[in-house]
Design a protein around this nucleic acid. Sequence first.
RNA 1: GGGCGAAUAGCUCAGCUGGUUAGAGCACCUGCCUUACACGCAGGGUGUCGGGGGUUCGAGUCCCUCUUCGCCCACCA
Length: 919
Amino acid sequence: MPERSAPAPIAESDLPTHFDFAAAEAAIGQAWDDAELFRAQAARSRRLGGERDPFTILIPPPNVTAVLHVGHGLNNTVQDVLTRWRRMAGDEVLWLPGTDHAGIATQNVVEKLLAKDGTTRFDIGRDAFVARTEAFVAETGGIILQQLRAIGASADWSRTAYTFSPELSRAVREAFVRLYERGLVYRGHRVIHWCPRCLTSLSDEEAEFHDSQGKLYHIRYPLADDPSQGITIATTRPETLLADVAVAVHPEDGRYAGLVGRTLRLPVAGLSIPVIADEYVEREFGTGALKITPAHDANDFEVGKRHGLPMPVVISAEGMMGEIADAAGRVPEAYAGLDRFEARRRIVAQLERDGALVKAEPHAHSVRRCYRCEAVVEPRLSDQWFVRMAPLAQPALAAVKDGTVRLLPEKWEKVYINWLDSIRDWNISRQLWWGHRIPVWTCANGHALAYRENPTACAGCGSTTLDQDPDVLDTWFSSWLWPISTLGWPDEERADLKAFFPSDVLVTAPDILFFWVARMIMAGYAFEDRAPFHTVYLHGVVRDMKHRKMSKSLGNGIDPLDVVARYGADALRWTLIQGMGLGVDVMLDPDDLDKSFAPGRNFATKLWNIGRFILLQVGDGAVTSRAALDAAALTLTDRWILGRLDATIAECDAALGPARPAGATWPVEARQQGMRLDAYAEAARRFVWNELADWYVEAAKSRLAQPGKDREVARAVLVHVFDHGLRLLHPIMPFVTETLWQRLPGRAVGAFLAVAPWPRAGGTTGGEAFDVVRETIDAIRGLRAEYAVTPGQPIRAYVADARRGAALADSAALIQRLARCALTIGPAPAGAAAHAVLASGLELVLPLEGMVDVGKECARLRGELDGLAKQLDALRGRLGNASFTDKAPAAVVDAERAKEREWAGRADQLRKKVRELCG
RNA sequence: GGGCGAAUAGCUCAGCUGGUUAGAGCACCUGCCUUACACGCAGGGUGUCGGGGGUUCGAGUCCCUCUUCGCCCACCA
């Protein structure tokens, strides 16, 4: 670690009124890096005999081509908050960063680049294309990781992973072969989702539903031997009729009873097709007759299989009409080579001309589109590799049901369970070039086998004529291994795997719950026989003021780096965290960054100025530690702020919750506890701003001005509570807190807040009486405002009750300064007076020397009395009700009785005052 | 079509297993350059807790229903 010089003595010129975040972010970031604070050490993990509990977070790897957007900012800020919290709490923390090669997405980007150069991947060939993509990734990949550093991400950059690295590729291959050996990977011939633009098959999850307003065409298919009779079918995709091989009706549908087994004449194509009966047909829908197109509809495929029907393919990979397979004589020349949608228009026109189109009615339905390019997906018959999911899903389902893995917020558990309950096999082969090649080779004798190492001869027959499967694996087939592959799997002896797996919390948005989260849990069980993490934190997404998700295409995005440049990383982070309830979307206005990020900007500045005051007032002389402070020397305000610190620490801890389950599973009552980052942020903010700055600092000012023992006590307490406030805030605002913390007196050279211990409550008591002082000051300020007494006008308050007033006597000077009001214990002089009865039972009288409008004061007092009387009536009604006193818990009843006495006393005082003043 | 969730201040949201007089930030109004901070200080709540019904001594909180939004899933072509 490089030697760091001690901070220079503090001068006012050193501390401008606003935090120079740009300079601090650069300097502090560099200092953290130099000190290697974020580097995890496997040997320190308890799992390897070390002293610390491991705490592992694996980044959801952004696409290697990605550029930071505010969604990444949110996601990674949450991870960093948790990471920094646990690091301070003493865990051996690993936040493992990395990127995803993102098969389709990256291939699309490079294809666009090629298009700019006027070429295509087919022109340059597979090897050159892969090389070009590798070069592109080498050049631009990982930009996003640099950007994450700029927002303060404290990841272990030395362990940066990449799904397409040699190490992770080895894990992918091993996983495929193991599943193959277990019979869980198989070759399937069926109708899959096909993207005619990306030219690849897609999984069910990758073909997303989009609502669309289409048309339902009713088309009449005449009987071959009697054109006066026929069957009218309904379809939304008339172009597929060229691949029709039958018309199906329900076996018990009387309307068509006599037609089953007869032959129809297929319009346009002019072919003969049979009428068949199948129970799959819904009698109520459309005409109750269904055209069967086995090659272009997943359900028709099943019907076709049951009835042994042919399966002609009439739509090409590119989405053009043509006689692709088993379709000889089916596509008239006029339609060959036409785009499927153009073909639809022309076929409808021809049907209309031929009188076969009965009607075309508007029809709202869902159309599947490619999740990468939004092209309408074409169901297409083809051969693909599948993973049998039911056996893998079983332990993943049990893990969530029994609390081994908890999902926050809870509502996602139901969605997850629902999905896994009806899981379907996963199509993992993609007809792309960018990705992990499928490790299956087929020999001349047709033996298709999976190999761990590239084979030179067929393992089945020894043939040396071998061809590797041309397809690559779904990107998510590498992503689902992320929790194990990044830690060294399949090498079971790797220290990282032993020390840091299973990980702890997975932080992501819910949109990849199925794509990624569920599959990772399955992979954890499939390959390591345990869940890969115990908590899944599903946060909301960032939206604009119209509740639209921020996106590049809508142009409503916010560039986090722009926010960092304007207001600093801390302001960005604070705003995101404090605005984010559990699973709740964050609303920000891209057109008004000043307003959107005001909470973070304002608080960072406030924090800076509190620090500025403390540093300038306290100076750099020695400061007594909290432990060395004489308890008897503590004043009321000292006790109060120390007590508030304890309470705040407890609140923050409660909001953050347990870092891990105590046992193997989460007890039911702990499943939804913790991770309330907004509540944690608010508790810490309230302490530092509304308690420390608003009250304690104000109270300390006079003490700091007088040299002596009390000044030393105030300095010590001030430094102690600010130090701990900075610790509580550091996970959210790392830069400003580290900058200030390092300048606090008594800091060792080379000490970092980033690894300072997380605060623990110290057990200070005896500060409660300060609440009465605060209440008194509040009341006087309120009356001042109400009677428009300018700050310059001196006033005097009287507390008639000597016993109660005595409690305030020690704080008279503070009241004088903060409320600008002298305090006298004793009866007030007669005459007009502003009046207040406090919750603590104190009665305040402010003569305000002729400034009080008697009528106004009477009206105010009467209003107050009326309100109180009403509430008192309700309270007495409750207390007079026998069923309440019998049935309610004793503590509640006692509390209500105490309240009744207190309110009655206040009402009496008020009544007396009204009589005196108003007659 | 099935499932899930939400509706609280002008806006975004807290309000845990029912129990003080329903809160925060932003916005807004009034007064302050009180030498740490005007990105601040002091004061101010502007609410039929979506409508209706029910359970209870007591409902923002539990149940039913209606209305309006949102999300997930889905093989009615």
